[in-house]
Structures are given as C-alpha cells and as structure tokens.
C-alpha cells in the first residue's frame, strides 16, 4: 500500500481525509499563522452536516453566528481576507435574517479552499515538517 504521506501529496482532499495528515497540516499552518483557514474549512463542513430538523434551530443559528463572528466579520483575519465581499454579505444577511440554510457557508468554504490549494498546500508539501514526516 502507498504510504500515507505520499497519498497526502496526491490532493488536498486525500490530506484532509486523513487524521494524521490533517494534524500535521494544521501544525504547519499554525507556524505560518493561518491555522484559522483549516479550522474554518472544517467548521463549514461541520455546519453543513448539522442538517435542519436535527437538533434545535437555535443551535444552528448560534453556530452560524459564531462562525461568522470568529472568521468572517473581522476583515484583517486570514479567512476574511480570502472571502469575497459578496460572499461575506450573503453570510451576514443569512445570519441577520436568522435564515440559515445548510449551504450558507458553502461558497466561503470554496473560496478558502482555493486559497489553501493555491498557497498553503504546495508550501506544506515542501516544508520541513512534511518532509521529515515523509
């Protein structure tokens, strides 16, 4: 079988599907000061899984507000800098109108993922932390 570290180099999703790979990538991002990119990406996935009807609507609203406040609202943050203004407005409207559908963060997640794939992921594959592990 292919060693895990080699699989991680195949695609971002093969890295993020693996627990050890995710932890190593997060350590790298933390050193680079942008672990929030990965936390946000997983928060979006977690939010989508919290389907309407399961658990309280209040909990989903509270979570949407928490994700928005922590990652999107403050323009200087690593996530906010990579999310387009129109996407931010869309999320803000969802939160303010308290109409939070499971796909509320999908576009923002796509934009952050593109930034990770373009910058952080290639840097990770060349980093000491990855090469030492591999």
């Amino acid at each position: 079988p292919t060693p895990p570290a080699l699989r991680w180099a195949g695609s971002l999703h093969s890295l993020l599907d693996d627990r050890d790979g995710t932890q190593l990538f997060r350590s790298f991002l933390r050193e680079e000061g942008c672990a929030d990119l990965l936390d946000f990406w997983f928060a979006c996935s977690g939010f989508r899984k919290l389907a309407p009807g399961e658990g309280s609507e209040e909990k989903r609203l509270k979570l949407a507000r928490a994700i928005y406040k922590k990652y999107v609202l403050h323009g200087a943050g690593v996530v906010a800098r990579r999310v387009k203004p129109a996407t931010k407005s869309f999320i803000r409207d969802c939160v303010l109108r308290q109409l939070v559908d499971p796909a509320a963060f999908d576009q923002a997640q796509t934009e952050v993922q593109a930034a990770i794939e373009e910058h952080s992921y290639p840097l990770f594959l060349k980093s000491d932390i990855y090469l030492e592990y591999a």
Binding site: R19, F42, F47, K49, K69, K70
Partner: peptide
C-alpha cells in the same frame, strides 16, 4: 447552554477525520 466557542469547537471536531 454551550458558549459559542464550545459550539464552534464541537462543530470543527465533528467534521475532522477520525482515527483509522
């Protein structure tokens, strides 16, 4: 009642891959 931060952490953890 969970604080917003606890809720966020729980959400992130729920989406992370589990140990194989």
């Amino acid at each position: 009642i969970d604080s917003e931060d606890d809720l966020l952490q729980e959400c992130i953890s729920s989406a992370m891959p589990k140990k194989k």
